[in-house]
Design a protein around this nucleic acid. Structure first.
Length: 429
DNA sequence: TCTGGGGTCCTAGGACCC
DNA sequence: TCTGGGGTCCTAGGACCC
């Protein structure tokens, strides 16, 4: 009889840790990574946290620190982080057959049915964090528990200590859970936390003591599962099948507001093209598209509206999707409005092999099979050229040449590991 | 001054049907 | 005037995650 054991592996201060990989001069120094357009702080090294720099803090507030050299700031460099992430994720299969990548810097590991118990897994736990640090340079922490929720709690504790924590046995569980504030619990966000506190639920342990049936009535099924999971009862499963995405969203806030149609149209066309590219690489097609515009959330005249449109036949054909996106944009656009952000979402994505037969069968868009075939070949060629010649080499006219909507990323590090031209140079004497 | 981007799931309520 | 009880499907909105 084998124990259920889940692990949650988390890369510590991931983006900041990545930035230090090729900058040994920054080890033990405060490092901060900024969001798109250098707007706010999205990652901090421990030293930067110690300086009191908060997550989400506006860059202008800490600009002085950066200019005086007290901290080093980077614009986000997602292609670099993504590459480091996939290297780490690939390594995990050395130790465990079942890995679910949860985010760019986190993965759940399923150690169940491997004949391990809470004792025999300890050396493996140590080995994982040691080897990953040694081979990739990224510090990670690994928490273990009998459910995914408890593994998550364990990881929280691990991060604050020496990188490991084990909640598989019941022994210390109550003590650990009473140290976790309710708003730190996975699944309790900024809305639920105050409600729970009002009910006298202050810690994860308090929550674990609540009657799950009552919780279901008052808060819903997710919160019921949460209680059961905190008590070691397995409810949430690792999706072994990588579930295909149901939507693909591309959005950007603009550095400066945009009020002319042409500039906005270029941005929307670019987002649509990017979303299609992702869908094609997933092998999916969209049933519809949604375009959304908004002005600044922080102004009194906040405007936020969007519109959806279905396709006659599910598709990932960029010209078709761009055309629909621009039609939607035209009907949404209001003259003289200072738009701050645009979003394009491909809706209800489906596996393209299923759709292919349906569309042709019903001839829903008045195109011949030959035309569909040609559309697909065209997209394949575009993708191929962009993959081999570099991202964005080939694009559609409606995306525009100037792309004024693109803002600044003034402090971006080189794409060390994904661009030949930006490889780090090593000098040897 | 400025204030990210990309997802998932659940629930409530309306439309519609028998 | 009064007008059941149940089911399904869809959508919008809310909540969560990193």
């Amino acid at each position: 009889m084998s124990l259920r054991i889940y692990g949650l592996l988390d890369c510590n201060n991931f983006f900041a840790s990545c930035e230090r990989l090729f900058r040994p001069d920054l080890v033990n120094k405060p490092v901060v990574v900024l969001s798109n357009n250098d707007g706010v702080v999205i990652a901090r090294s421990p030293e930067a946290k110690q300086l009191g720099i908060a997550m989400g803090e506006a860059y202008f507030k800490i600009k002085r620190l950066a200019e005086s050299g007290k901290i080093t700031v980077f614009s986000s460099n997602f292609s670099f982080y993504g590459d480091i992430s996939s290297r780490i994720m690939q390594m995990l299969y050395r130790w465990v057959p079942s890995v679910e990548i949860y985010s760019i810097d986190e993965a759940f590991l399923d150690f169940s049915n491997l004949g391990l118990d809470s004792e025999t897994i300890i050396p493996i736990q140590h080995e994982i964090i040691t080897i990953i640090k040694k081979w990739t340079g990224i510090p990670v922490s690994l928490g273990l528990g009998p459910t995914m929720t408890l593994a998550k709690v364990a990881n929280d504790i691990a991060k604050k200590g020496d990188g490991i924590c084990n909640l598989i046995d019941k022994e210390y569980r109550n003590e650990i859970l009473s140290r976790i504030e309710i708003n730190q619990v996975w699944g309790v966000g900024r809305r639920l936390a105050p409600k729970m506190v009002k009910l006298g639920i202050h810690t994860a342990h308090d929550l674990a003591m609540i009657d799950p049936h009552w919780m279901r009535r008052e808060f819903g099924i997710l919160q019921e599962q949460l209680i059961r999971e905190l008590n070691g009862e397995h409810c949430i499963d690792l999706n072994n099948m990588p579930s295909p995405r149901k939507s693909i969203q591309v959005s950007r806030s603009f550095h400066e507001t945009i009020d002319d149609f042409q500039t906005l149209a270029e941005a929307v066309a670019t987002f649509a093209a990017k979303a299609c590219e992702q869908a094609r690489s997933d092998g999916t097609v969209a049933s519809g598209i949604y375009v959304h515009l908004n002005t600044s959330r922080y102004k009194e005249t906040y405007l936020s509206e969007g519109k959806a449109q279905g396709f006659n036949r599910a598709t990932a054909h960029s010209p078709t999707v761009i055309q629909t996106a621009l039609e939607l944009l035209r009907s949404l656009f209001r003259q003289g409005t200072p738009y701050k952000k645009a979003t394009v979402i491909l809706l209800n994505l489906k596996d393209n092999t299923v759709i292919k037969s349906q569309g042709i069968l019903f001839n829903m868009d008045n195109k011949t099979p030959e035309e569909h075939y040609q559309e697909e070949r065209l997209m394949e060629s575009v993708d191929h050229i962009n993959q081999t010649m570099g991202k964005g080499k080939l694009f559609f006219g409606s995306q525009g040449m100037k792309q004024y909507w693109r803002g600044a990323s003034e402090h971006q590090s080189p794409k060390y590991t994904t661009h030949w031209n930006e490889l780090p140079v090593v000098m040897a004497k």
